[in-house]
């Protein structure tokens, strides 16, 4: 039982972590809490659905031939990439239309209000386009494999799709970490997050770094959304429901810290899955709020704040 709770928590947590990374990066670079980030997740998931249909039609229609043990074929991977690119474009357009103009006017909190409005508009537009019924990438049934037999810690079962999600999330996180630590573009992002004025006099084109941050954040959000849709189902509220866990994870990890967002995401995921036997599945979503309030009261700067002075 306990092993299964941990495994479920890690799978949910890896989705939260991917979303929280994007959130923490835009938060620390652009200096506002972007409530529209959840909608990038939802749009990413649904855009992937649209592209999936396109790629399946391209391959002659019919059903998608699964890859190995997974429930999906190459078409979903292609759709994941295309959906992520389209979501990045969506984020850039939103920045150009709204956030960039507002940040020229000054106050960060006005950006937060605007993002709240943008979130509702985006979510409802999504509902307008796709309707409110749940959707699925694939109807293929998945059989959970026994990874740990039942007599050890209650046993552990996971579907191949879940393991795929976990593995790809891990690859993305490690890749992103290396990108931020080793490459010029990644270091420039950290530099801008730390001190935009100093970044400018150092010769960094802050506007371009901001654009790349939107792109990266949106890509990770789209991947998170597609993962959530793959191991669960697609609903228009998929992004809204993740928003509170994302914020909890980002603050728990310390705003601006990518490793922090990952660990925060995993902790929130674990808290959610542990909440199910403790307070009931219907209150699962309250676990993130509990984590959030606890961290605000005990250590508001988060576990790994990067903004060391």
């Amino acid at each position: 039982m306990i092993l299964q709770i941990i495994a479920d928590g890690l799978i949910v947590g890896s989705t939260i972590a991917l979303g929280a990374i994007g959130l923490t990066m835009t938060y620390s670079l652009l200096r506002f809490a972007n409530f529209a980030h959840g909608e990038f997740i939802a749009w990413g998931a649904y855009l992937a659905l649209t592209f999936l249909g396109f790629f399946i039609a391209l391959g002659g229609g019919g059903a998608m031939a699964p890859l190995g043990p997974f429930s999906f074929g190459w078409q979903l991977l292609a759709a994941l990439v295309a959906g992520a690119i389209a979501t990045a474009i969506l984020a850039l357009v939103l920045d150009w239309l709204l956030f960039d103009r507002l940040s020229a006017q000054g106050s960060a909190i006005v950006l937060t209000i605007a993002s709240f409005g943008a979130a509702l508009a985006l979510r409802n537009f999504l509902q307008f386009v796709y309707g409110t019924l749940p959707a699925y990438y694939t109807r293929e049934l998945q059989i959970a494999i026994h990874i740990v037999p039942r007599d050890v810690g209650g046993g552990l079962r996971a579907t191949p799709d879940q393991l795929f999600v976990l593995a790809l999330a891990l690859v993305l996180v490690v890749g992103l970490h290396l990108f931020l630590q080793r490459t010029t573009a990644g270091r420039a992002m950290r530099a801008v997050a730390h001190n935009p004025a100093l970044a400018r006099v150092t010769g960094i084109d802050v506007a371009s770094v901001v654009r790349w941050t939107w792109i990266l954040g949106a890509i990770l959000a789209a991947v998170a959304g597609t993962f959530a849709g793959l191991v669960g189902q697609l609903r228009p509220q998929i992004g809204f429901d993740l928003l509170l866990p994302l914020f909890a994870a980002a603050i728990l990890g310390g705003i601006g810290s990518v490793p922090g967002a990952v660990i925060g995401g995993l902790i929130v995921g674990l808290a959610e899955s542990a909440a199910v036997p403790l307070i009931g599945a219907e209150y699962r979503a309250a676990a993130a709020f509990g984590v959030l309030i606890a961290i605000l009261l005990v250590r508001p700067q988060g576990l790994f704040a990067e903004r060391a002075k």
Binding site: T184, R187, A188, R190, A191, H194, N195, A197, L198, A199, V201, T202, G203, I204, D205, E306, R307, A308, K309
Partner: peptide, 26 residues
């Protein structure tokens, strides 16, 4: 070249990274 009065280094980056970053962008 401009050296601001305060907060004039990138605190989360190492000394070498501060300099390498400045070199790379220029």
């Amino acid at each position: 070249g401009f050296v601001p009065q305060t907060e004039n280094v990138f605190a989360p980056l190492t000394v070498a990274e501060n300099l390498e970053l400045a070199a790379a962008v220029a």
